[in-house]
Simulated assay, not measured.
Amino acid sequence: MGELLNANIICAGYADRPKVLSNVSLSVGAGEIVGLIGANGAGKSTAIKAILGLSRDMEGDIEWNESAFAYIPERPSFYDELTLWEHIELISSLRGIREEECRKRAELLLEEFSLTSVKHDLPSTFSKGMQQKLMLVQAFLAKPDIYVIDEPFIGLDPISTKLFTDMLISEKERGAGILMCTHVLDTAEKICDRFYLMDKGSLLLQGTLKELQDETGSCSLLDCFYLAVRGSHQ
Rank of each mutant, 00 (worst) to 15 (best):
E74S: 13
L115H: 05
E59V: 07
A68Y: 10
Q132V: 09
Q132P: 06
F69T: 01
R75K: 15
E63A: 08
S127I: 08
S114V: 02
R75E: 15
I62K: 02
S124H: 11
S55M: 03
H87A: 01
S127K: 05
F78L: 10
I72C: 11
I51D: 00
S127Y: 12
E86Y: 09
P123G: 08
V118F: 04
P76G: 09
V118D: 02
L136A: 11
G60F: 03
P123W: 13
I97T: 05
L90F: 10
F113A: 03
E100Q: 05
R103M: 09
Y79M: 14
L109H: 00
K119W: 07
L52Y: 10
R105D: 04
S127N: 04
R105I: 06
S114T: 04
W85N: 14
L109F: 04
K49F: 05
E89C: 12
R98H: 12
I97D: 10
S124N: 14
H120L: 08
E99P: 13
A106F: 12
A50R: 00
S77M: 14
P123C: 10
L90I: 05
H120I: 01
H87F: 12
L134S: 04
D80V: 04
L54Y: 13
I97W: 01
S117N: 02
K133A: 05
L122P: 07
L82C: 12
G53P: 14
F78T: 04
K133P: 11
E66W: 00
